[in-house]
Simulated assay, not measured.
Amino acid sequence: MARQDTDERVSDEFIDDTQDCAERELAHRQRGTVRPITVVGHPMLHRECQDVTEFDGALASLVDDMFASQHAAEGVGLAANQIGVDLKVFVYDCPDDDGVRHVGVVCNPVLVELPAESRVLDDNNEGCLSVPTAWAELGRPDVAVVRGQDATGKPIAVRGTGYFARCLQHETDHLHGSLYLDRLSKRERKKALKMMAEGTPRYETVPNPPAA
């Protein structure tokens, strides 16, 4: 997700992703290599990714590259298919609405359906590294819980509120082949794509393959 300029159970399984954020993020990206970002229209972004089944050194290296790529593009979240890898994994380095920084990685994420009374709809701007220079207002629940696995295969759950909740939902959508554009009206989608066409990305992108 692009950086914004502007039945749930309380359980010990929720990870604490707020500790040593700067050190952990820096270690990942120092080991990683920056990769270009795929943009809307690329086939990889429009189909569901494969489950992560091997929690090995190759996955650890991918996570490092994802943190490096996310940082270079000034994003707060990045899914593997945004750098051309067909796996259900995303990383994040995102503040919540209280300014608390969260850093982590989730493999095989599944959004938990929360009771309606535990959340409200948050109408705010949303952007995407795969739709560079474009923004649109999009309503999403202000609380999100994602269950999945960490980079070693351990089951985890991540809870987010506000902007961080939006990030968790946005990145999980990516891994199921959906962009935030797909949640917009036709008019708003067209407007966002026009903004993208008129803008210039600040980071390297992958040209879309020619139509067959």
Rank of each mutant, 00 (worst) to 15 (best):
A68S: 09
S69Q: 12
Q70T: 14
H71I: 02
H71R: 14
H71S: 14
H71Q: 13
H71G: 01
A72S: 14
A72Q: 13
A73N: 12
A73D: 08
E74G: 13
G75F: 09
V76M: 11
G77I: 04
G77C: 00
G77E: 00
L78D: 07
A80W: 02
N81R: 08
Q82F: 08
Q82S: 11
Q82V: 08
I83W: 11
G84E: 11
G84V: 09
V85L: 08
D86M: 03
D86L: 01
L87D: 03
K88S: 05
K88Q: 14
K88A: 03
V89W: 04
F90Y: 15
V91E: 10
V91N: 09
V91S: 09
Y92G: 00
Y92F: 13
Y92L: 06
Y92C: 01
D93C: 05
D93L: 08
D93P: 04
C94F: 05
C94E: 08
P95R: 03
D96W: 00
D96E: 04
D96Y: 00
D96Q: 02
D97A: 05
D98G: 11
D98P: 03
D98K: 13
G99L: 06
G99F: 09
V100C: 02
V100Y: 00
V100P: 00
R101L: 13
R101T: 03
R101Y: 01
R101I: 03
H102S: 06
H102G: 09
H102L: 06
V103A: 02
G104H: 04
V105F: 05
V105W: 02
V105D: 08
V106R: 07
V106Q: 08
C107H: 09
N108M: 01
N108F: 05
N108S: 04
P109W: 03
P109R: 07
P109G: 03
V110I: 14
V110K: 14
V110T: 15
L111R: 08
L111A: 08
L111S: 04
L111M: 08
L111W: 00
V112M: 12
E113S: 14
L114Y: 05
L114W: 07
L114I: 15
L114S: 01
L114C: 02
A116N: 12
E117C: 13
E117K: 15
E117N: 15
E117H: 15
S118H: 12
S118V: 13
S118Q: 15
R119V: 05
R119Q: 14
R119C: 03
L121F: 10
L121I: 12
D122N: 15
D122Q: 15
D122M: 14
D122F: 10
D123S: 00
N124K: 13
N124C: 11
E126Q: 06
G127F: 10
